[in-house]
Simulated assay, not measured.
Amino acid sequence: MSETKAQMDTMDWQQLKLDMQAAAESLGIDKIRISSADPFVELKDILIRHREKGFESGFEEKDLDKRTDPSLSHAEPRSIISIAVAYPSKLTDAPRSEKGAYRGMLSRSAWGLDYHQVLRNRLQRLETWIRERVPDALLESMVDTGALVNRAVAERAGIGWTGKNCSIITPEFGSWVYLGEMITNLPLPSDQPVTESCGDCTLCIDACPTGALVGPGQLNAQRCISFITQTKGHIEDDEMKKKIGNRLYGCDTCQIVCPKNKGKHWTQHPELQPDPEQAKPLLLPLLHMTNREFKERFGTSSAAWRGRKPIQRNAILALGHFKDTSAVSVLSDLLLRDERPEIRSAAAWSLGQIGGEEAVLALQNAKEREQDPIVMKELEKSLCPSGS
């Protein structure tokens, strides 16, 4: 019998699990729970129907088998360790939007250091802790960029339950938690799922700005502001452009209204604490920000993963939302000179929202030279009173 097999046969796995959970705080983890590594059969059926309805965001792993079968990510899956790290929900000393100095907003998931880095760090600490006790353990860690659906793992493991807003809601921390998991060949005993639920509450569904929550735990990502703000290219839906408001990245509405989140705010992880000027930046300086300047300003945030273009486009829409007359000259310059059609179409829409002689003149001048059909369509709508 090999030394490794002998150790595996004699290890007290229940005690190892308890010791691991007791060590969570020292590892910078707020909650550790264990699930089986069985395939998520029922989830696959749900995901198939989700795809058939056209509700996917396009950011997901395309292979549904990889999303639901741990054996496709790990050679010997016997259990999955699920972790949660709580993040802040309140911005202390938040700067205000003022006339001529309007600000946008990053969602809480983009505050502080990119949570992918934080979660990978925590999982690495946990891997080290395990290998000190089981040197030959097979471990495969992943954050939400991994193939598996981390919310399904967290729910099965007992981290929390899936709320009607599609977030994992924990009894201790509400839904203000980041999730990660580690597939292992260790036969760790499973924890029990959380029995608490949302009950009859539908506040999140009722509050969703675009009706993207089409039912309890059902999200049409094509209507979700959080996903729309992260897309590249044009946003052609006028209603969506209005609903985005001054959101530059993400949307927290369905979590803010959740009663399970009331009064919950977490500050135990310094690297997740927000810089107010990064979380609520001035809009106008964003419009001419270079790639280098964007990386210097936002490169540490999870909002940087899609680059500066979507955030600049969203900032332009926000200026239209505020009807900021002081932005007309800058928007006019973008409309006439920017090489990116998605920026020009956003500028045309915002100028139409702001209105006034200067804005109309800029729209008319642009219409005489514009070649892109989508931008031209936006110009025509903005110049028509019924389309503004």
Rank of each mutant, 00 (worst) to 15 (best):
E140K: 12
E339C: 00
C258K: 11
Y102W: 08
M105W: 03
P88T: 00
L203T: 14
E155Q: 14
D38R: 14
R67F: 03
P135C: 03
W305Q: 12
I83C: 03
L72V: 02
W305I: 11
S197D: 15
E3A: 14
R308F: 00
A348T: 07
C251A: 04
R78C: 04
G199C: 08
K5I: 12
E239I: 00
G112H: 09
T253Y: 01
I316Y: 09
G320Y: 06
P285R: 13
V85M: 02
E196R: 15
A279F: 01
S57D: 01
Y115A: 04
F298C: 01
L47Y: 05
P171F: 08
R340D: 07
V134Y: 05
P281Y: 08
S71H: 14
Q353D: 03
S388T: 13
L91K: 07
E378Q: 08
A86W: 08
G263S: 10
T229Q: 06
P216I: 09
L286S: 03
D19H: 07
R292Q: 15
A110K: 09
P274F: 01
E342A: 12
G250L: 04
N291L: 01
N121H: 06
T162G: 02
I48A: 05
V143N: 05
R122P: 04
W349Q: 11
I183G: 10
K164W: 12
E60C: 02
A348H: 03
Q117S: 10
A24C: 03
K381L: 07
K280T: 11
S35M: 10
D69V: 09
D238K: 02
T267M: 10
E98A: 13
S89D: 07
R306V: 08
I228K: 14
P187C: 00
A362L: 10
I81A: 03
M182L: 07
I311K: 05
L287C: 00
P209M: 04
A94Y: 12
I316M: 06
E25G: 04
S175C: 13
P209I: 04
L287H: 05
V375E: 13
A348V: 05
E271I: 11
M240H: 00
Q117I: 09
Y178F: 15
D191Y: 02
L139W: 09
S332A: 15
T10A: 15
Q312Y: 01
A362R: 12
L334R: 14
P385S: 08
S79A: 13
L283Q: 07
Q255P: 02
K381R: 15
A366H: 12
K323P: 02
A75Q: 13
A110N: 09
I32P: 02
R133V: 06
Q371M: 09
A94H: 11
M142S: 12
K53N: 14
I130S: 04
